[in-house]
Design a protein around this nucleic acid. Structure first.
Lengths: 329, 329
DNA sequence: CTGTTAGCGCCTTCAC
DNA sequence: GTGAAGGCGCTAACAG
């Protein structure tokens, strides 16, 4: 394995010049640059990253801690983030906290050990409470989850507004007894529930929201119970793709058709939502934009640690499908 | 930030002893161990990984290069791999090649730069051709994709057998004109097509297989064309979850019901396959086992670089659902 | 079992 | 714009 001194010898320059050319940190003459690059090529030299990181105290690595990698929403976001990160020569260490605060803590510790340049995090509820970037030895950008008063860079959906619009859409189509299943483990689920409740109250309707644990299984059983109530809800709203999946399964089990027997709407524009006849009305999240915005915030925070905290709020798009068709009277 | 010499001073021992306690590489007396651990705790000392890696020439990091992270199959496998890897104190660098050989090459280069302990790779077709582990400066374990004669550690499904069994299942239920859409970009798709063709030929039927590019969009249009043929196929078989999704969408568009108008079967037991009435018959892949087996092979290969090449073949499980019910006559 | 010491390969001052 | 030299923080070899 060639080393920097081999390159220097081959190019007839000092190791310092080789280093300068390769890091681009200082001015080097055109001729030395060319000779160094030629030598690098000839020897197939690759800088030793461990040595470089030890000496420079920089890793150009970011941590990405998602709450649940099996949630397609996070898969999409991860993909976008990694794409952009690698393009700008950053490494990504991906960790899956599985909605488990302990795992989350372990991974954040690990990020410190790795001396990452920054972290993109979708926090668990407990961590978000009183979250302060200053508590971490690296810049942090939150994604997907963020409280109104969280003083940290963040990229989130307009959760409350989106849920409000989705609920109003159901109301305008004639539904009144609208139930809501929301993920209680995340700030996001709670905000969507708020939006739902605001819309219901604003229209003189009584909100009936049930908290679930954001797993398909739990959503399914909870929805099953809800469906056995009298009178049965005329419509159901699910605060995430995973919950929507559970609810849809429960409707199948109960042999209820939508929208005839019960209307349905939810979050996350997953492929299967247009597959299930007659299609499910959802709020589509701009996952690509979300990922790109997160990287962008992080990059700027790294460059200017003292700049003002920023929040990017992305608008969810209402995708109307058959599951929320105007109610028959 | 405390350093190892601070710990040594605090504990009243040498830096070597601290190092030995922390790495567990050599015998240390109980008393020194305790004093070191106490000092570590008191100072909240964390070893500098860059320094450790430079000195020890080990990174305890593995690379995971998947061909398409949006494919839920790979998401599941990744999750399993990361879970086990972090448990045994390995870092994981996840890369998404997007079925693009160029990206794949870049990432493999990156793995070399990172000096990873090993790589788990689901190779593109072109890389798999003539693949030799010796061409790489690190141990490699292949997942999901592997040719009959590939001389490398690998964990794969019994693709040919699974497809064979799935096809026979359709035949036994009375279907004869069975079409197959398979992913041509991967060895896996081709093997499944082989299994399908073997079953068809073995029963005196004419295989009709169409290659697609393993994207939902392409599968949808191709399936659409297939459905307009005369006579229309009595059943369709899709070689992956993504293709199955496209085919199912095409059936919806064509207003064809299954199994009445056409039967359907495919690979990957994704949540939505039981949601779409009356459920879709699939081969379920044991993604967790696959991930665990891959880590296991890699660990053993790292420990014993010269051991014989091993291949783990996992059996796919046939999940019979309504989409392949016995054909009406 | 423990301490001393010499690097791991590179970047970065400091002189020129 | 360039070169010489000194560490970055740690582990591993060697001696005791």
């Amino acid at each position: 394995m060639a080393q920097i001194k081999d390159v220097a010898k081959q190019a007839g320059v000092s190791v310092a010049s080789v280093s300068r050319v390769l890091t681009g940190q200082a001015k080097v003459s055109e001729t030395t640059t060319q000779r160094v690059l030629a030598a690098v090529k000839a020897l197939d030299y690759r800088p030793d990253l461990a040595a470089r990181r030890l000496r420079s105290r920089r890793t150009d690595t970011i941590g990405l801690i998602v709450s649940d990698i099996r949630n397609p929403f996070f898969t999409e976001v991860s993909r976008a983030i990694e794409d952009v990160a690698y393009q700008q020569q950053w490494r990504v260490i991906l960790c899956n906290a599985d909605e488990n605060p302990d795992k989350e803590a372990v991974y954040l510790d690990l990020m410190r050990d790795e001396n990452v340049s920054g972290v993109i995090l979708s926090p668990t509820l407990s961590r978000l409470a009183g979250f302060r970037p200053a508590d971490y030895p690296f810049p942090v950008v939150l994604i997907d989850r963020c409280d109104r008063d969280t003083a940290a860079d963040a990229v989130v959906l307009d959760n409350l507004d989106s849920a409000y619009r989705l609920t109003v859409h159901l109301i305008e189509n004639g539904y009144q007894r609208i139930g809501c299943l929301y993920g209680a483990v995340s700030a996001t689920g709670r905000q969507r529930q708020e939006g739902y409740a605001a819309a219901m109250n604003g229209h003189g309707l009584v909100p009936q929201a049930v908290a679930v644990s954001a797993t398909v299984d739990h959503a399914r059983t909870t929805a099953g119970n809800l469906l056995r109530q009298e009178p049965r809800p005329q419509a159901l709203l699910a605060s995430s793709g995973l919950i929507l999946l559970g609810v849809t399964e429960a409707l199948r089990t109960a042999r209820l058709r939508f929208p005839e027997d019960i209307a349905l709407a939810g979050f996350d524009d997953l492929p299967w939502t247009r597959l299930v006849e007659p299609g499910i009305t959802v709020i589509a999240q701009p996952t690509d934009d979300l990922g790109r915005a997160a990287i962008d915030l992080l990059r700027q925070r790294i460059l200017q640690p003292e700049q003002a905290v920023r929040r990017v709020v992305l608008r969810g798009e209402l995708e109307v499908r058959g599951s929320s068709l105007k109610m028959m009277v």
